[in-house]
Design a protein around this nucleic acid. Structure first.
Lengths: 340, 340
DNA sequence: CTGTTAGCGCGTTCAC
DNA sequence: GTGAACGCGCTAACAG
């Protein structure tokens, strides 16, 4: 590997000049610029970012740690982050919690050891990830995503789950559906789920959709969706809309409905939550709520950048509004395809 | 941030001693070890990996670049890699091609700039990624995954697609299915797809399953699966098994079959390929071929490690055997659940 | 504008 | 067994 010294010798200039040409930090005589460029290309020179970072005290690198890199949702987030960071000339250093708080903590520290300029964290658990996240926040600027560890002085950008639920409810009202039931996982599963449940209750009470049936709580998933429909069948009083807390449960509901011989969306409409891979491929395709992953990513990066420039007044807590994706599980093909 | 010098002062020893204690590179008097440990803990000292890497000329870091980090398959691979690297005390530096060869090339070089000890690459395109991958291979040891760029001197670990197809065909033979049809994407889409097609042809000709219908080629996806079934319906000669080139197409086939009123698996059985997220949630769940991602990851890392220790004789080309996951799209519930 | 010099924080000689 | 001194490759400060 060629070093800057090699380039300097070949171009017949000093080390400092090479550095200046390469980083554009100061004006250099055009002729010398050319000579340096030439020499650099000839040698296939590449800057050593380790040395550079050591000297500059920052690395144009931000750390990102997610609970489970294999999860589609997190993978998408990482990709979104990676994309805009790349465009800004920064590099993403990924850490993976592998679903384990201790592993997560170690991943965090390892990133610190590599001198990241900032950190974007999706905490594994709002309780148990607390100590590590707070400790890290003392070392470098941190912005939490999706979930916070209850530290008011650490930035947080998340999705407004309640607004998403209102979108669903309004959509149902537009369709004149009056007897809805909410099928979801038990609200202890995640903060998001309980927010959606609360918003459903609230919306059902005060919104345009009335006549609401008590929420059905189970362990979210395919099986629970099917079982919920089974229970409804026994009760013999079918609702005209089923709102699900997540897409997977909605798939189960769809399957149960098919077994029961009901037509979607004619007899009954179904909605999911969290448009990530599944909703599109179900049959019929699922109307669902899409989280603005790209905006979340950009907001987090923006915030990090602002903080680095010293605009770090008080910590922010942003909630970004999701959008409704209307598909055939609520609207028959003819009137299909609108997204709002 | 505390530095080694701070630790040395607090412990009343020299810098060198601290270094030795922390890296365990040489024996140090027990008492001093204790003092250093204590001082280090008190200060919350963390080694600066930039400086360390600069001095040692290696970083215990390996670069991983994938075509599209948001793809579930790649995300899973990254997670598998990340897991075993973590266990070995190494760190993963991720690069994302974002589906673009130029971006991929830049990601590769950026990792080189960070002094990775080795590189694991899933090339975006076996043709167009060639130059970059070959150039990188001159800088650092690289092992390609899944797809090679046709350089015989660069390691490659991939999945034996043909073996996977044989698994499917044998399974069908066990079920006494005699009229199968293969529905897949056009074989120009990827090398993997064409390998599967070839293996299907081969297996159909020489294997235990005879009476084979000409493969149906389209653009893989939900729509093509449905359409393929539509064409079959017109022909009025139903096969007793439909083998699909990928899971998504299989989902479409399942949907088409339902519309046509056929029972799966009684009237007809269906198989997918690449068990990643979709197969489990379809109805009925899909029998499919699972790629051994964990083994692929471990093999790649193992190879990198071997090369670093100087065992890098000739480049290897490994093909790992996938496994068949039997679900209800080929075997009715009663006899379900076996995986082999 | 350009060159010389001094470290960034570490690991590693070489003397003791 | 321990410490002092050097240098990894680079940028920032200071002269010229």
């Amino acid at each position: 590997m060629a070093t800057m010294r090699d380039v300097a010798e070949r171009a017949g200039v000093s080390l400092a000049t090479v550095s200046r040409v390469l980083s554009g930090s100061r004006r250099v005589q055009p002729e010398l610029v050319e000579r340096v460029r030439q020499a650099s290309d000839d040698l296939g020179y590449r800057r050593n970012l380790l040395a550079r970072g050591l000297r500059r005290r920052h690395t144009d690198t931000i750390g990102v740690v997610v609970p489970q890199a294999g999860d589609l949702r997190h993978a998408r987030l990482v990709q979104a982050l990676s994309r805009t960071l790349h465009d800004r000339g920064e590099t993403l250093l990924m850490g993976d919690g592998h679903g384990n708080v201790e592993v997560e903590a170690e991943a965090l520290w390892r990133l610190i050891d590599r001198s990241v300029d900032g950190m974007i964290i999706v905490p594994l658990d709002s309780e148990r990830s607390g100590p590590a996240v707070r400790a890290i926040a003392e070392q470098v600027h941190v912005v939490q995503v999706e979930r916070g560890v209850g530290a008011a002085d650490i930035d947080l950008v998340a999705v407004d789950e309640a607004a998403g639920m209102r979108l669903v409810l309004d959509h149902l009202a537009d369709l004149d559906r009056e007897r809805t039931v909410f099928v979801t996982g038990s609200h202890v599963e995640s903060e998001g789920a309980s927010e959606r449940l609360a918003a459903y209750r609230e919306g059902a009470a005060t919104g345009r959709t009335r006549a609401v049936v008590t929420p059905m709580l189970g362990i979210s998933g395919l099986a629970w969706g099917r079982e919920a429909v089974g229970r409804l069948a026994i009760s013999r009083r079918w609702p005209d809309a089923i709102v699900c807390g997540d897409d997977l449960t909605a798939l189960g509901v769809l399957d149960g409905l098919r077994a029961a011989g009901l037509q979607v969306p004619d007899d009954i409409v179904v909605t999911g939550f969290d448009d990530v891979g599944l909703a599109e491929v179900s049959s019929p395709p699922l109307t669902t709520v899409r989280r603005p992953l790209g905006q979340v990513a950009d907001a987090a990066i923006e915030r990090l950048d602002g903080a680095r420039r010293g605009e770090s007044d008080a910590a922010v807590g942003w909630r970004l509004p999701p959008s409704l994706v209307v598909r055939e599980s609520t609207v028959a093909p003819a009137a299909e395809g609108s997204t709002r």
